[in-house]
Amino acid sequence: MSEEHMHHPNYLKIWAMLVGLLVVSVAGAMVGIRVVTLITAFGVACVQAYLVAKNCMHIGAARRFVPYLVATALVLMLLFFSGAAPDVMKPAGVNWVKPAWQEAAVEHDVSLHEARH
């Protein structure tokens, strides 16, 4: 096996934390306030991912190059998102519009409006 034995944290404790976080994210969704739901859901996902990467995947025990590369991959995805979103995510921009998307959004608003009344 590896030269140095890995430091093994108490996996049961981490498992309990992860389950607790899962309960939090489900509970956040039950509250019914959109902002709270989104914050708990994605906040929990990030915390869970960090816990697993640090304690179970032992990312710290890997060569320093590895966490940098993982971080780079994540940054690249952020970069891709920010490069593509101004075109793909928007129904209109400078000197261009997507008529079908705008119509769909209007229809959705109308149906929401009708549903409320």
Partner: peptide, 19 residues
Amino acid sequence: IVVFGGVLASYIMHRLAHD
């Protein structure tokens, strides 16, 4: 990570665009 990143970034863009 980048494979799933590609799918999820595309999904998030569309999801935010379409209420």
